[in-house]
Simulated scan of single mutants.
Amino acid sequence: MRNYLLDDIYEEDVKKISAALSELEFQGPIEGIFYLPLPEELLNDEQKEHMGECGPFFMALEVEETSVKVELLVRARNKIRCSCVAYATSEQRNHMMEYIDKFIADLEISY
């Protein structure tokens, strides 16, 4: 699995990240898992075609004790297996990495 990993984060800062993600209602079905929505304009053609049946699309973020890990896989909320579920394109990957970096900086967390 391809991931974007931010580690060596203080425990209290990880809790701050989790609280902020929860406030945005990004929680997944499992504790410590959050779903980061992917803007529609960044979807590839197939994902756009499958929006009604498979979407919305997101990337999963896992919060661990001293780290945050984003899977660089675009997942579909309504289907586990479909050809539209695929590794992020360069544009999708860059967007999500920049989003997470800004999100954490806005919380005044340094890592």
Rank of each mutant, 00 (worst) to 15 (best):
E46T: 13
F34N: 00
K16P: 09
I9V: 15
S18P: 02
L43W: 14
A86W: 03
E64H: 09
R93E: 15
K16A: 04
R93V: 04
L21W: 09
D7Y: 11
L36T: 01
E25D: 13
F103E: 14
F26V: 00
C54L: 02
L36R: 03
C84A: 05
E40C: 03
Y111P: 10
E98D: 15
D106Y: 12
E71C: 06
K48T: 14
D13F: 01
E64A: 11
Y99R: 13
E62C: 05
L42A: 10
F34V: 01
C54Y: 01
D45L: 04
I100R: 12
C84K: 03
E91P: 05
A60S: 15
T89L: 04
I30F: 06
Y111R: 14
F103R: 13
E23I: 00
P56I: 06
E65I: 10
V70R: 08
V74G: 00
L72A: 03
R77Q: 10
Y10R: 07
S83A: 05
F103C: 14
A19Y: 05
C54N: 13
N78L: 07
E108H: 15
A20W: 10
E49L: 07
D101A: 15
Y87A: 05
F58M: 00
M59L: 15
L36W: 12
E108A: 13
Q47N: 06
Q27C: 04
F26D: 01
C84W: 04
N3M: 05
C82Y: 09
L43M: 06
M97S: 07
E64N: 10
D13A: 02
G52M: 09
A19W: 02
I33G: 00
D106K: 15
R2N: 10
G52F: 08
L107S: 12
E25S: 12
G28N: 04
A76T: 05
D101F: 07
V74A: 07
L42E: 09
Y87M: 05
A19R: 07
A105T: 11
E11Q: 07
I9T: 02
M51V: 09
I100T: 15
L73H: 07
E64G: 11
P37Y: 07
N3Q: 11
G28L: 02
H50M: 15
S67C: 11
I109N: 09
G52Q: 14
Y10V: 00
E71R: 11
E53N: 10
S83H: 08
N3D: 10
M96T: 14
E65A: 11
L72V: 02
D13I: 01
E11N: 05
F26G: 00
I109K: 08
Q92N: 12
N3T: 14
N94M: 09
L5E: 13
E71M: 09
P29I: 02
M96Y: 14
A76G: 13
N3Y: 08
F34Q: 00
E11D: 10
M1C: 04
L107T: 13
R2A: 08
